[in-house]
Design a protein around this nucleic acid. Structure first.
Lengths: 359, 359
DNA sequence: TTCTAGCACTCTTTTACTTCGAGTGCTAAT
DNA sequence: ATTAGCACTCGAAGTAAAAGAGTGCTAGAA
């Protein structure tokens, strides 16, 4: 059933009032904002309660939104806020000179998001499976060489290998061509023991050299597949009134701090058309998040990679403000990483893609 | 003035009692432990108060240790705990298969330390200034090459450079020899504009190629100098009764979360002969730590590098237990990183030193 | 002397009880 | 349909009394 205009107005006012003050909203406070008497408001509110959009903490308190109420607000009622000049400028400035490597960038983005929204934030980038595109072996001295692997996602990993015995330049060259022949174009799962064994035979390797380089390769590929998830600003939770209870705060914080749990709750799909997704209270799968809400935004990280940033907070979250900020940051990241916009600066002019480093 | 045996016993009991319960310790509770009546204890305690080793929160409460009391306890009274079999095993197991890169290892060590001690922990490695030992340029295709820099600390950094115009293999070779001639053996501060300019002239470089690689070099060296400090387990604070006040907790947590502050308070020297250092409450320089204590241990990270791990907690900290755990972990790290002990496993047999990655 | 027992006193914590007020639900009038 | 009025509910805040832990002091025992 469709809500009357006035009910919508009341619901919106309750949600926004509660977001602002963290106190149940009473009928008197709304009377003048809506333009009718408190008694009317009361009637309307009690209907909203029976429809499931509002709740009463106890008989003689004001109303607070139910999860369904928040949902309706987010889906239909909320006006998307615009960022202030200052906020937009701050974000731009932070993102401007970021030709850092991806892992470090994610950490910074997490911090930025957290400080802009005043909630704990996380940031990660999903990567498609990768393979090695080419190997290079750099001979340093009789006991040392470097393996450099260029991956299909254009990141570069390397490893310095120090040997307790000596090798010749030629041996390294042989190793190099064997690895380029046998270990390129395959994912980590496709590197089997038998391939390693046969390469070892071909190289006449009795020292386990092949095994070392192969395990380095597997490591690189596995690491490249794993998304580095960064969490920042956990302590922001403590400034929210609903987490003044240290036990609650502790429970949620330790849940958040270990990002791996958060991942489980990320539906890879399910983002709205605007790249935003809001999960309210009980909609969250994880038990620890049943009283909290998560807002996340996705961005284009280039090369078919997709990234996500999000914040975690109480259900009484400033959805509108957070959504606006996340969108803005996500858009900036898309521009930066997918290069849909030409970044300025010498580095950026020349270096379109920057290496990642050996896992 | 030297304390009588009995006073020492009482002080020890008060400190340990308070550590265990977070409640002021009364005379009656101590009576049987010490072996004399509560009245005697009271007399002794009131002397300890006037000597400055104990404090009274208010007239009719038990006693708690003063910072001086903790100090005396830590310096002379405390018995160094031994780790239980299980704890030692847990630490060993965690450290066992860590041939990860240093930055990731530090993160893991921070987590390990935090979970063992139940306090927030940090971990970092100090590095001596480094220079590039040699450059290698890998020609990938007409628009792409990789710069690999082997640093004096035996880490390897790399960067994939993608050009909006094409270059020849020979140009890369020239660049390589120029960089090996002009940019090796110098620290980041010693790379001046004039060196860059003259290299550019020598290379006949009009595209800014030299500038890009040079700035990558500076970046690497600067990053290698900066110690990566990792903080873990901030939320552990919330389980301590003294931080049940969310405001206090928030203040300290945000201080800790930004590791850079913590660094300021690290006296590079000042570690005890056992590699341990305890800073109690007001002894800390940072205002935010005046009510907290810091226990840190140092370890040998090999190649003249020194590393530190530490925990932050209330002054009522389990100094003895924490010290034991930190020592043990630090010893394990020294063994792992400085290689004073032969680690097992194929990787470790062959690979004595592992690369770090591009900045 | 040095220690101990006893006791009055202090000060926090806990509990119970009261008051206060915001907000509701209902009814009757507009 | 809306509004004004009013009794009622229920948490929050405040007050008072009681409980309890621990001290300091004094006087007597070892």
């Amino acid at each position: 059933m469709e809500l009357s205009e006035r009910k919508k107005k009341i619901l919106t006012a309750v949600v926004e009032g509660y977001i602002a003050t963290a106190e149940p909203v009473g009928s008197k406070a709304l009377a003048e904002k809506i333009g009718c008497s408190s008694a009317t408001i009361r009637n309307e509110m009690s209907e909203l309660v029976s429809m499931g959009y509002l709740e009463q903490p106890h008989t003689s308190a004001g109303r607070i939104p139910s999860p369904a109420g928040y949902r309706l607000y987010v889906n239909e009622l909320m006006e998307k806020q615009k960022l202030s000049e200052a906020e937009a400028a701050a974000i731009n400035e932070k993102l401007a000179r970021k030709d850092e490597q991806i892992e470090r960038l994610m950490a910074e983005v997490g911090q930025l998001t957290s400080s802009m929204t005043q909630y704990p934030a996380y940031a990660l980038t999903m990567k498609p499976p990768v393979a090695v595109k080419r190997f290079d072996f750099i001979y340093v001295d009789a006991n040392t060489f470097i393996v450099v692997a260029l991956l299909t996602d254009n990141t570069v990993k390397n490893k310095l290998i120090h040997l307790p015995f000596s090798v010749h330049q030629e041996q390294i060259t042989v190793l190099s061509s064997l690895f380029n022949a046998n270990f390129t174009g395959v994912t980590d799962r496709e590197i089997t023991d038998s391939i390693i064994r046969s390469t070892e035979r071909a190289a006449g390797d009795t020292y386990g050299l092949v095994a070392v380089v192969a395990s380095f390769t597997i490591e690189c590929l596995a690491a490249a597949r794993t998304a580095p998830l960064r969490v920042a600003g956990e302590s922001q939770l403590l400034s929210q009134p609903e987490f003044r209870d240290p036990d609650k705060a502790h429970a949620l914080m330790s849940f958040i701090a270990d990002g791996s749990h958060l991942m489980d709750d990320l539906p890879p799909a399910g983002m709205g058309t605007d790249g935003l997704r809001v999960t309210i209270g009980p909609e969250n799968l994880a038990q620890e998040l049943k009283d909290s809400s998560v807002v996340m935004a996705s961005y284009d990280a280039g090369d078919g990679m997709r990234g996500y940033i999000g914040v975690v907070g109480p259900t009484r979250m400033d959805y509108s403000g957070v959504a606006a900020k996340l969108s803005y940051i996500a858009a900036g990241l898309s521009r930066l990483l997918a290069g849909t916009d030409a970044p300025e600066g010498l580095n950026n002019k020349l270096v379109l893609k920057e290496s990642d480093r050996h896992e």
